[in-house]
C-alpha cells in the first residue's frame, strides 16, 4: 500500500467493524470537512506564530523592529479597551454606513443599467474607472468642501465599494442563458415576472460575490481614509503607534483590523449559504 492510499476506516476513525449507512457516513464526512476547514488553518497559524517567536528569540530582534507574538498579544490585551476599542467602534461605524449605502446604491444602479443597454454601456466604463482608482487620493478634494467630517470617510468607502457591487450585480442580471430567455418568452412573461421570478435569483451568486468583495474593499478604504485624515479610527491608531515606534501596538491594531474584514466576509458568506440553498444540493 502506498503512502497516499488510505482506507475508509482511517478516514472515519479506524474503529468501524460494521459498515455504516451511506447517509450517516455522508453526515460524518461533512462534519469532518467542517472540522478540517477550521483545524488546518489554525494549525498553520500556530506553527507560524511559534516560528515568529523562535526567530525573534534566536536572532535577538529588537522590539522596535519585530516584536514577539507574546508582546503583541500583551499590547492587545493591555490597550484594547483604552486605545483600540474606541478607534475600532469609529471605523466600524464608517464601514457600516459606507457598506450599507454601497449595497443599496450598487444594487439600484445595476437594476437601472440592466433595463437599458445604453445606460449599461455608458455606466460600466465609469464604474471600472472608479474601481481601479484608489479613492483615498480624492480625500484632499473632499476635505476642501467637508473638512474633517466623517462624511468624507463614508464617501471614500462608497466610491470604492459601489462599482464592485454594481458591476457584479449587473453581470448577474445580464447573464441569462438564451434557452432560459426562451423559456420565459414561451410563457409570455411580463417584465415584472421576469425580474421577480427569474433575474434576481439567477443573479444571486454574482450578487454575493460583489457583496463579499465589497466587505474587503470597504474595510481597506475605511482604514486608508483613517490613515489619510488622522484624528480617529484604526488606521490612525496604526499611524500614530508607528510614529511612536510602538511596533507591538501597530501589530495589535493590524490584527484587529484584519479581524474586522474576516468577520464581515464570514457574515456575508453565512447569509449566502442560507440564501443560495440550491447550491448545497439535495
Amino acid at each position: 500500500m502506498s503512502k497516499n492510499d488510505f482506507s475508509i476506516q482511517e478516514v472515519f476513525g479506524g474503529g468501524l467493524t460494521e459498515v455504516a449507512p451511506v447517509s450517516e457516513l455522508r453526515v460524518d464526512g461533512k462534519k469532518d470537512e467542517k472540522l478540517k476547514k477550521v483545524l488546518y488553518p489554525s494549525i498553520l497559524l500556530a506553527v507560524l506564530i511559534v516560528l515568529w517567536e523562535v526567530c525573534v528569540l534566536a536572532f535577538g530582534m529588537p522590539q522596535t523592529v519585530l516584536p514577539s507574538p507574546f508582546s503583541v498579544a500583551r499590547a492587545l490585551a493591555v490597550n484594547f479597551k483604552s486605545l483600540i476599542l474606541p478607534e475600532l467602534i469609529f471605523t466600524l461605524e464608517i464601514i457600516a454606513a459606507g457598506y450599507t449605502i454601497s449595497v443599496l446604491a450598487g444594487f439600484l444602479l445595476a437594476a437601472l443599467c440592466s433595463q437599458s443597454r445604453l445606460l449599461a454601456r455608458s455606466a460600466a466604463p465609469l464604474a471600472v474607472m472608479f474601481m481601479v482608482t484608489p479613492t483615498i487620493i480624492l480625500i484632499p478634494i473632499f476635505m476642501v468642501f467637508l473638512g474633517f467630517s466623517p462624511i468624507v470617510r463614508i464617501i471614500v468607502v462608497v466610491l470604492q465599494c459601489v462599482p464592485i457591487i454594481m458591476l457584479n450585480t449587473l453581470t448577474g442580471f445580464m447573464s441569462i442563458e438564451p434557452q432560459q430567455r426562451e423559456m420565459l418568452a414561451a410563457h409570455g412573461c411580463s417584465r415584472r415576472q421576469i425580474l421577480t421570478k427569474f433575474t434576481i435569483f439567477n443573479a444571486m451568486p454574482q450578487i454575493f460575490t460583489g457583496l463579499k468583495i465589497g466587505c474587503v474593499i470597504s474595510t481597506i478604504a475605511a482604514l486608508g481614509a483613517d490613515f489619510a485624515m488622522g484624528k480617529e479610527g484604526l488606521g490612525y491608531r496604526i499611524k500614530i503607534s508607528s510614529s511612536m515606534v510602538a511596533i507591538d501596538m501597530v501589530f495589535a491594531t493590524i490584527i484587529v483590523a484584519a479581524l474586522v474584514g474576516i468577520v464581515m466576509f464570514e457574515i456575508v458568506s453565512f447569509i449566502e449559504r442560507r440564501v443560495i440553498v440550491w447550491k448545497r444540493g439535495g
Binding site: Q179, Q180, E182, M183, A186, H187, G188, F198, F201, N202, M204, I276, W278, K279
Partner: peptide
C-alpha cells in the same frame, strides 16, 4: 400562449426552485 406548452432540448429547470 396558455394553450401551448413548450419542451426544450434541455430541461431548462431553474436551479433555485
Amino acid at each position: 400562449v396558455r394553450k401551448m406548452g413548450f419542451v426544450f432540448q434541455t430541461s431548462n429547470l431553474y436551479p433555485w426552485l
